[in-house]
Design a protein around this nucleic acid. Structure first.
Lengths: 121, 121
DNA sequence: GCAATAACCGAAAAAAGATTCGGTATAGAT
DNA sequence: ATCTATACCGAATCTTTTTTCGGTTATTGC
């Protein structure tokens, strides 16, 4: 969450949507929370190759944009924070499922093309 | 299309899908082609705030991954190139429509939150 | 001949985004 | 007292993506 130098137009649905969940990790985070993985540390561990810091930052953005809700139990230590999807967050789930389904179906093909790229370097 | 230093796992559908159409401009390009805007120059003009160069680069990637087809009329000048969606490209359309619909519905809300961010800098 | 046009490409520079690292806080266990 | 765990934050650094800019090619129109 910092300032951009170039102005970004939110003039079509696609760009608005990408503003919300277009980041590299956002949909994975939303998916994890939806599957009941509620705590930052757990979310981080569930997403291969993610760093805790980036998960924290993306959670902060999702929170700011009202995609998720946060409740922290401040009394207990180690602190216990849980995130849940808001209704706005839940409204993304059908899209998430479609995207995940598409990716699963085409995974083999994409991975193959990808590896051709890497071989030819 | 260059080499990444960090390895990216394509271990879930979401990441596979994002590999294909997760870029900032890809879905806009697919949308444009789907609406009959077939030529690089026209696609560029139809997408506000895009540079021609980035459109060219993204078209090359979409081509490489088999999302679009290209046919260039080399005989005529100025050269005439037209892109079309392949069946793989067309398979993305339902998702694209869902995303666009979501963004259109929530556009006002997102733009408002966004402007709160910018005011408080 | 010269400008315009369309497609494209390479490379430097800028911007955006992610990682790394070190720090805070606080309580319970050893 | 020290270690552990969890959440979280700031800042430097590094990677990835986008922009900017200057080319090339080949034809049509002036």
């Amino acid at each position: 969450m910092y300032n951009k130098k170039m102005d970004e137009e939110l003039d079509c649905g696609i760009r608005v949507a990408f503003k919300m969940f277009g980041g590299k990790w956002k949909l994975c985070i939303i998916d994890a929370i939806n599957r009941g993985i509620a705590r930052p540390n757990e979310i981080h561990k569930s997403i291969v190759n993610s760093t805790l810091r980036v998960i924290e930052m993306q959670l902060a953005e999702l929170l700011f944009f009202g995609v998720i809700d946060k409740c922290t139990d401040e009394d207990i230590y180690p602190k216990k924070t849980e995130y849940r999807l808001t209704s706005l967050g839940k409204s993304i789930l059908p899209i998430l499922n479609e995207i995940d389904k598409w990716g699963t179906v085409h995974s083999e093909f994409v991975i193959e093309r990808q590896s051709e790229l890497l071989e030819s370097e």
